[in-house]
Every structure is written in structure tokens, then in C-alpha cells.
Amino acid sequence: MHAFKYHRPGSVKDAAALVGKNADAKLLGGGQTLVQTMKLRLASPTDVVDLGTIKELAGIKVAGGTVEVGAMTRHAAVAGSAEVKKAIPALAALAGMIGDRQVREMGTIGGSIANSDPAADYPAAVLGLGATIITDKRKIEADKFFTGMFETALQPGEIITAVSFPVPKRAAYMKFKNPASRFAIVGVFVAETGNGIRVAVTGAGPNAFRVPEMEKALGAKFAPESVAKVKVKADDLNSDLHASAEYRAHLVTVMAKRAVEAAMK
């Protein structure tokens, strides 16, 4: 790891001030991605701004048909929250599938979605539930948030403070894991929400994306067979040693079908 200067701001405002004026500064959430990449000397920020002690960033609030998860809420807290399990069981289940027990104790929702890792799980829920990303500057709709591989709509220095998930009628997440990294080769989040059906896919493309054809088919009939015939195009999907684009495209359909089945249970 290269040397850097460590900061521990007491508030989001202080944190914003620290990263705002320094393009080579990095925000530290749980560090489960950033610390790794720094250790491997693949990232070398001059300054690391640790959000870990900012109290206002952690916590879960369930009220008025939404579940609001503070940016520094650990995956384990979401997975284990009785309130989340009751309101959006699929969200708790998804959080419980991220990484492993130890990683879930440190990793945070804010860190995960700000990173927009193409294989991360949370983006599927954010997009699949049509969540709102709340930052220190504004609110961003999920549909406008993930803009590319490791790219989001966040401005330099902008800090996610919470993610607000509307409670759906029913939802489920199905993940086909990369056997080595345990990230998603393909993960599909299916939700029937107040604003219609949403199907979001992670792992398959450069960033999480929705599948309108599946949403339409499920809108007509919410049943596994509705998506069984819908294929996504392989052209724009990721291809690597573990899964070709064609295989990923196929898995999107299989996982979508299984997610619908699970949501109906």
C-alpha cells in the first residue's frame, strides 16, 4: 500500500470539504473494496477520508412505505434487521448474500453503490426497487444513478448519505455466483412495485441495468413462464474467463425466472 494521509471527519460537511478540493482523495466506507485495491497498489489516493465515525450516516429507518438505509450501514445490519426483513425481505436476503460474514460486517451500502462494481449485488436492489439515492447535495433516482462500469452520476466530492427503498408488493433476488470471487456472474432482482414491475440485472453488463421486455411480460402476467422466453442480447454483456456474454445472457433468463418463482412464494 502506498502512503497516504488519513482523515476522520466528524460530519458529512467536513468530509465533503476534505474530498471536494482534492481529486486524489478517496472516501472510505467499510473499505472492503478500497483497502483491497490499495493493498494491491492498484489505487493510490493521497488522502483517505474515513466516514466510519460519522454517526448520522448509519442506521435504518422504516416509515411511510419506504426503507431508508444510511450510507454507512453495514451489509450485516441490513441482512439482520427485523424491520427490513419484514418490509422488504428480498433486500435483507440480498444483503445477506454479499461477500461473506466478515465482509458483511464492514462493507457498506454507500460504498457498494458508489463503486458501481459491475458484479456487486446492491445495484440490483437499488435499480430493481427504484430506490432514491440521497446525497449531501441532492436526490438521484436509481434509473439515473449507474452510468457505467465503476461509474455513477455522483459528482466529484459528492457523498451518498442514504438510500431510500420504496416497499414493493413482492420482490426477490436470485444470484448466480462466480465460484471464486462470490460476486454475481448474474444477479436478477424482480419486484412488483407501486409503479409497476421492475427487473434489474447485475453482473451481466458494465453496470446494473433493467430489462423492459421482462417487465412488460411480467406486467401482463406475473409468472415464471412470462420471462422464460425473454432473452437479453449478449452483445453488450461482459465476457470473461468465468462466463461468456452468451452464457450470461442465458443466465439472466434463468435467474429472472427463478426470482419470479421466489417472489410468488
Binding site: Y6, R8, L28, G30, G31, Q32, V35, Q36, K39, V48, D50, G52, A76, D100, R101, Q102, V103, E105, M106
Partner: peptide, 21 residues
């Protein structure tokens, strides 16, 4: 996970966090 320790009642990977954390 060989580096697993308990921190504040939960297990974490001590190779994946700064001492400052």
C-alpha cells in the same frame, strides 16, 4: 479469512481494514 478477528462483537477480516478504522 485467516486474519479473522472479533471487533466490537462481530468478526471482521483484519487484513482488509486500516488500523485507524
Amino acid at each position: 479469512g485467516a486474519c479473522t478477528v472479533q471487533m466490537n462483537g462481530n468478526v471482521v477480516k483484519s487484513c482488509s481494514m486500516l488500523a485507524m478504522q
